[in-house]
Nucleic acid binder design. Structure first.
Lengths: 235, 235
DNA sequence: TTCAAGTACGTACTCGCAGTATGCGAGTGC
DNA sequence: GCACTCGCATACTGCGAGTACGTACTTGAA
């Protein structure tokens, strides 16, 4: 029994000028798939969200799914990308306009702590992301979105501190802060009172940054010429 | 003395006095299962390591597996626990004897950066752990092992800094440093030259800690009375 | 208008794998 | 010695990802 009549659920009409009618419909079902997938992946997790339930939710069949995506993982990746992009954009919006680096850092942190509380971000990016995509692709995706913001902020702060750093060191500091924020975000999201917890995190990180500033004033330099130090791994 | 004629694949003889022969054999197969599972989970990941391949590797059948474990996840949990415990013990051993807190922190960090390079730790704890166990159980497990070490170290450092902190703040700082270390560890493990990368991480974190020390000398206090600060964050 | 080609799906299957039901022999307590 | 239950083996079930193939509707050319 063909579904034939398109009476009920009408997809969005071709909003992209120049695109054909068919292409518009196609894009519409693809979006529907990603929408439903995001919802079910968030609610049940990657492993417990069956493709059958996803295509059912999107009112299509597996044929449609496999026409648009190479498989379950590819579908997840599409969802992942969207969630990450949204998060990244939210942060960028928030920090735009702040020119003082410390101020920018604080705002970025605060925004991140908000974003990380969204269920979809926690589940899809933080929890399932690494396992499903694997280290490799997970990192690749991150680099182009949220992590890039962190690098940007860290660079501003370090430059403001009048430290001369090679890029490797910026990388290292960024990784450290990114991890710190992610972990802190987790504890915030899981706290009884997220607002209080977020405040605590902010205080703690501000304190750490204060340490940076103190070192600036004291004229302490970062050791340069990394890569020379040798230590026989285990002592 | 047990009969020595049991030819090949002899399981460990009852090394636990008081335990019956049967119990010893049972414990042996259980260990074999966890051993093989650890290996295959590490190599192929949780999702791609089939129970059939695990029981085959352990030279038993699914009957044995389901006799000892409730299911695949339970088996993973046993593996996870062991890997975490090993890591925790390694770190504890390393920092034992160091009484200077800063020194202890540095040693702990260095050891952790070594541990996190073990494939089994990266795959089982870092990559698959959160997805398989879920936030809840993952955190529970962590709290009793590696994370506990971090809390210990952070507490020493903060006490040494002559700061008076409530436990919540110790928690917060610990989370932050734990996340920082985990993330840093990831970048170390993925670097072209892990030794150089580890050095960079050490320098960066040492620098941060130096900031703490600078603040100590400057007599800067941490803002206390957390939880009062409010920010109209909707709701 | 017709028609050939291709696109965007739908239908019906396969196969691998986690989990289950059940049987059975070898220790173990009495 | 005897019942019993423990530790495991065998055989099966069901679910879910992926595949092969059919088909209606578009689209562009003649």
């Amino acid at each position: 029994m063909p579904k034939s009549s398109v009476s009920k659920l009408v997809p969005k009409v071709p909003s992209v000028p120049g695109a054909s009618r068919r292409a518009a419909y196609s894009a519409s079902t693809k979006r529907a798939l990603v929408d439903v997938a995001e919802e079910l992946f968030t609610e049940h997790g990657y492993a417990n969200a069956s493709l059958d339930s996803i295509v059912a939710g999107a009112q299509v069949t597996k044929g449609a799914l496999y026409h648009h995506f190479a498989g379950k993982q590819a579908l997840f990746e599409a969802v992942f990308e969207r969630v990450e992009d949204d998060a990244s954009r939210t942060i960028q919006k928030a920090i735009k306009g702040h020119k003082d680096p410390w101020d920018k850092a604080r705002t970025g942190l605060r925004t991140f702590l908000t974003v990380v509380q969204e269920p979809r971000y926690r589940r899809i990016v933080v929890q399932d992301g690494p396992a499903v995509l694997g280290h490799e692709r997970f990192r690749e995706q991150e680099e182009r979105s949220t992590y890039a913001n962190v690098v940007d902020i860290v660079r501003s702060v370090l430059v403001a501190g009048a430290w001369e750093l090679d890029e490797d060191m910026v990388e290292t500091f960024s990784r450290i802060f990114f991890g710190a924020m992610a972990s802190a975000g987790e504890s915030v999201a899981g706290a009884d009172d997220p607002i209080v917890a977020a405040d605590r995190v902010e205080v703690a990180i501000s304190f750490i940054i204060s340490g940076f500033q103190a070192l600036t004033e004291a004229g302490v330099a970062l050791p340069s010429g990394l890569g020379q130090r040798r230590e026989p791994a285990q002592d």
